[in-house]
């Protein structure tokens, strides 16, 4: 991956000037590269990774991973069905997988009831959806390479040769 992308993927707050300092590339060139990535859609969006456990009251936020087996549609395959599914705002992620089922959805809701009613009223009855299996998420430890627990303090001495 390009170094600029690698840096931004880790901290999207850094300015082009700071990235220029870190990499030794000219600030102008960094700006141009970022613009290019934004225009081509390589950079989709800048967002913040939030540990929901620390900002919501326990029990008021529910996330589920849902395995979906589908019957592919003639000519359009999985994509058209996937689009019908991921267009629901409750679906926060959607992946096509190899293996014993086809799509993996991440669905969020305010409580167990809203998520299960989404599955029973929207997902399961949908034409081409053969079967769903819902796994409620109990705890998130690590996301996108980041461990959510706060790092323990450094054990180094403050000074050494």
């Amino acid at each position: 991956m390009d170094e600029i992308l690698e840096i931004l993927a880790n901290d999207a707050r850094l300015s082009a000037e700071e990235i220029s300092r870190l990499t030794g590339k000219k600030a102008e060139d960094v700006k141009k590269a970022i613009k290019h990535y934004e225009q081509t859609g390589a950079i989709v969006k800048y967002k913040t990774l939030i540990n929901q456990e620390l900002v919501r009251d326990a029990g008021t936020f529910v996330r589920a991973l849902i395995e979906v087996s589908i019957v592919p549609q003639k000519n359009v395959g999985f994509d058209a069905i996937a689009e019908r599914l991921y267009s629901f705002p409750e679906v926060t992620s959607c992946y096509l997988l190899s293996g014993s089922y086809d799509l993996l959805l991440v669905v969020e809701g305010d409580n167990l009831h809203t998520v299960s009613s989404f599955v029973s009223s929207k997902l399961a009855p949908m034409e081409n959806v053969r079967r769903t299996t819902t796994h409620f998420l109990l705890k998130k430890y690590k996301e996108d390479g980041v461990i959510l627990k706060q790092k323990p303090k450094s054990k180094r001495l403050n000074i050494s040769y």
């Binding site: 180094r156 001495l157 000074i159």
Partner: peptide
């Protein structure tokens, strides 16, 4: 500390 002779 910028005085440490070991990795952080």
């Amino acid at each position: 500390s910028l005085g440490v002779g070991e990795p952080d």
